[in-house]
Amino acid sequence: MIPAAFDYKKAGSSEEAVALIVEHGDEAKLLAGGHSLIPMMKLRLAVPSVLVDIAGVEDLSYIDDRGDHIAIGALTKHRSLETSDLLITECPLLAHVASKVGDPQVRHRGTLGGSLAHSDPASDLPAAVLALGASLVAEGPNGQREIAVADFFTGYFESALSDDEMLTEVRVPKAPGASWSYQKFNRRAQDWAIVGVAAVEVQGAAQIALVNMASTPLRAEAVEAALAGGASAAEAAEAAAEGTDAPTDLNASPEYRDHLARVLTKRALEASGIS
């Protein structure tokens, strides 16, 4: 399968990339690692007429200690997240979740920013940054703005980024020593999660996000509230499907996904000791 023809532009900086997407509007797509976009282009699910390759923007690949948070450049690859000593110490959930994306070849190419901007509700990393309460920096023609992750995922493969903005940085609060767990359920190696649950304890409060339980990743608010109210892990996990809208596909019915959400949430709480 070969993608439909397109014009290829290379951006050397984020300013250049923004100028190119402003010029070409919604006909243009940003290309980072390409591991979500190129498969979609091969299947003609995406047919951009202009690709703006930002992989060469060197100053967008970093994992920096900024005191109370860690700043991660949007072009940082999954493999770099997975092996970062800083993340393993200060935010182990994110390093671990990155190691569960696809397979090694995918992780050598895929980027954190690309995964978040793609906003696939079945992807691992969007739920992880949602559970962590990260914030995201977008750059547009009028400068930068910071978007809370709770406002970022707006619909099925849709984000709060506008057509003339690119994601440049992800800011993750530090959580050294925090209890955490990621439970990913799938039937084949390298696959997307049929359902996934990311749980982390931040300043004594449980923050839990669900993968593939709605058209966006979402927080398991009913579970969090139950835990805050003193419920046991097993009791709180019973509320995991509340407020969700699980999709149906070849892998699972909504009822089965609801069941998985409850079971995986219980496992996540028990494995991490979050209460």
Partner: peptide
């Protein structure tokens, strides 16, 4: 993974990468 090659020493799937990349 049948199409796996190395780019700068790392394994990648060459069916999911444009030559221009």
């Amino acid at each position: 993974g049948a199409c796996t090659v190395h780019v700068n020493g790392e394994s990648v799937k060459s069916c999911t990468m444009l030559a221009v990349q």
